[in-house]
């Protein structure tokens, strides 16, 4: 510290708290650092919310179409998240309701969704539909498009090849 040995301080300097003439403290206690404490509290709350929401979302089993009625939790009488690829030519939109079918590993499931799916929803693309299976069809209330880990240029010749091959969903041969 500025040209001095801090270990000598106790001998050389009177470190008792100073008081005013009336006996009150000359300087108040050092203010507590409230902002980091508040941020830490918010961090704990946010962490709790994140974990809770993750666990709550996990309550809806994430099933592939071919697992319905086969895998535990992928039953027709409960809410699930169902993954499959949108079948070619299956999309029908009528008065705000979108109907289509999804397939995975050779199994297929009709889907009825009250609305128009967002994102890059189209034929031959993997989707995850949230809902309940009723009367043999998944009554979806949320449709999410699942993008694969492949990135292909829009003008790539492979697009033409893929078009020639028709809808060849990745899950169909999985």
């Amino acid at each position: 510290m500025v040209g001095s040995d801090p270990t000598r301080g106790a001998d050389d300097v009177d470190l008792t708290p100073r008081t005013n003439v009336d006996g009150t403290a000359a300087a108040g206690p050092r203010p507590r650092q409230w902002l980091p404490i508040i941020v830490l509290a918010l961090v704990f709350v946010a962490g709790g919310v994140i974990v809770t929401q993750f666990l709550r979302s996990a309550v809806d089993y994430y099933c592939n179409v071919d697992e319905v009625g086969v895998r535990d939790g992928c039953d027709a009488d409960r809410r699930i998240r169902l993954q499959g690829t949108v079948d070619e030519g299956s999309i029908v939109q009528d008065r705000g309701v979108t109907s289509f079918s999804i397939s995975f590993n050779g199994s297929s499931m009709p889907v009825v969704y009250d609305g128009e799916p967002g994102g890059i929803f189209k034929e031959c693309i993997p989707v995850v539909v949230h809902g309940v299976i009723e009367q043999g069809a998944l009554q979806g209330d949320r449709v999410e498009v699942k993008h694969s880990d492949e990135y292909v240029a829009v003008n790539d010749e492979r697009v033409a090849d893929a078009t020639d091959l028709g809808c060849n969903p990745p899950g169909s041969d999985a």
Binding site: L40, V43, F44, A46, I50, V51, Q53, G119, V145, H147
Partner: peptide
């Protein structure tokens, strides 16, 4: 939002990334 159709989903990757963010905000507060 542009690809999946949703801004956020309590999906494993998104959730763990959010947790990573919150953890290091906590580190900075500490």
């Amino acid at each position: 939002r542009l690809t999946w159709g949703v801004f956020w989903q309590w999906d494993a990757r998104l959730t763990t990334t959010a947790l990573l963010f919150v953890t290091y905000v906590g580190y900075l507060a500490v």
